[in-house]
Design a protein around this nucleic acid. Structure first.
Lengths: 236, 236
DNA sequence: AAGTGGTCTAGACCACGCC
DNA sequence: GCGTGGTCTAGACCACTTA
């Protein structure tokens, strides 16, 4: 039951409740939410209050409204949100074609000195190479506590995304922060990404957290700067 | 007068009209808009329709609502929006301290081959160095058609921002797109930014357009990657 | 006390998708 | 035709700011 609490508006409580249900899988991604009318009956408010609540989720990109159909729970929405800033080339909005992912290595390590949260945590280290049209573009290294990824089968990684695997282990990423820096490739990077020693790369580091604010993945990516570019657009 | 046109919702037309008034200076930045009640009288709609229109501008960052006071027209909001992605260092949210701007050079050039819009346009080329706490951080080169910046006095540049100068010449930037790439510094860059040849930089290229979609500034910035980092945060 | 934005109600009509 | 989301109205009460 949603409390009528004047310290925080009702629509915010409803938005939080619906978000929780999405986390917990009551409203699974790919499915539609109950209609505005049904939700307004359940929460005993008018349709406009429900609309205001749903609008909160819509702005965050958690759901998407389709006239005549309903509210669709989006999958991986936040990962796409991060990716929307990347584009290929400068003016061309090319589509992602023939994406491919090669698993280079996976092993257990005892911890990461440089990351406070992972200093003494047993981790999976997973190295992958991402290609597009057979051109190597991104070199990824993920670190995930083994506790969060107990059922880990190699073939799954080739088909499923890491986030889906985490989901199956009941770990839901709800917040992520990503940092970008320009770097030069190491010898190993040069070989794998097929670039020269003087061609700069983007290095991104992404921290992914669950709803309890625990770090569940650290991902370092090296991205070829000659094929990717980061872009931001602003309109008054 | 706002037409009741069912091809596009009324609130969108009102939002566009108010945006135009902000462009034209009817509602200058730093001032408050007329109240919701007054606007609903003028446009002959209910308060909720006005609120929906104002919400469009609020989401874009054009205006800001303050309970009990009104809607404040923000200044340079889009430039701040671009800047919000930059941060100093990785985890520290340091403030910008002792900012300084050195005018290195300014001259007229006959055009830029690499930019279609500027191939045969007489341009101002303005080179500036930005420092923070006496550390050189950003090397900027701006190209502006001389037609758009007729009254150009050197001392003004030291105090006023380029956008304010353009505004005084009745050129209002309403849209900008910025691209980011990792690059290595040239010899000249190394000297000015005080970095070594193997320390990577961010190169950003920003295109600024006015309301008629004319390119009014091209700005290339070289940013020290060891002091700046780009970051994006996403929340479900 | 008066004016402002923030929230919420109850009801209406429209445009879209599907059967 | 029916259910869905999208828009709009008319009015109420609240919280905040300023005088």
């Amino acid at each position: 039951m949603i409390a009528k609490n004047h310290l925080s508006a009702i629509y915010k409580n409803i938005a939080a409740e619906i978000t929780q249900r999405i986390y917990k899988g009551v409203y699974p991604s790919g499915a539609y939410l109950p209609s505005e009318n049904k939700l307004s009956q359940e929460f005993e408010v008018t349709r406009s209050t429900i609309r205001k609540a749903l609008n909160v989720l819509k702005e965050k990109g958690t759901i998407e409204s389709k006239q005549g159909k309903g509210y669709l729970v989006k999958e991986l929405h936040w990962e796409q949100s991060l990716l929307q800033f990347y584009s290929f080339g400068q003016n061309i909005a090319q589509n992602i074609e023939n994406p491919e992912s090669k698993l280079l290595e996976h092993k257990k390590i005892k911890g990461l000195k440089s990351i406070d949260e992972f200093v003494s945590t047993e981790l999976w280290q997973i190295n992958r190479l991402r290609l597009m049209n057979e051109v190597p573009l991104i070199l990824e290294t993920s670190y995930i506590p083994i506790d969060y990824l107990k059922n880990f089968e190699i073939p799954e990684l080739k088909q499923d995304s890491l986030y889906n695997l985490l989901k199956k282990n009941d770990n839901h990423v709800v917040r992520a922060k990503e940092y970008l820096e320009p770097v030069l490739p190491s010898l190993n990077d040069q070989e794998l990404l097929e670039v020269k020693e003087d061609s700069c790369l983007f290095q991104t580091i992404r921290y992914s957290y669950d709803s309890e604010n625990k770090l569940i993945e650290l991902r370092e990516s090296l991205i070829r700067g000659d094929h990717f570019s980061f872009s931001v657009e602003m309109t008054l």
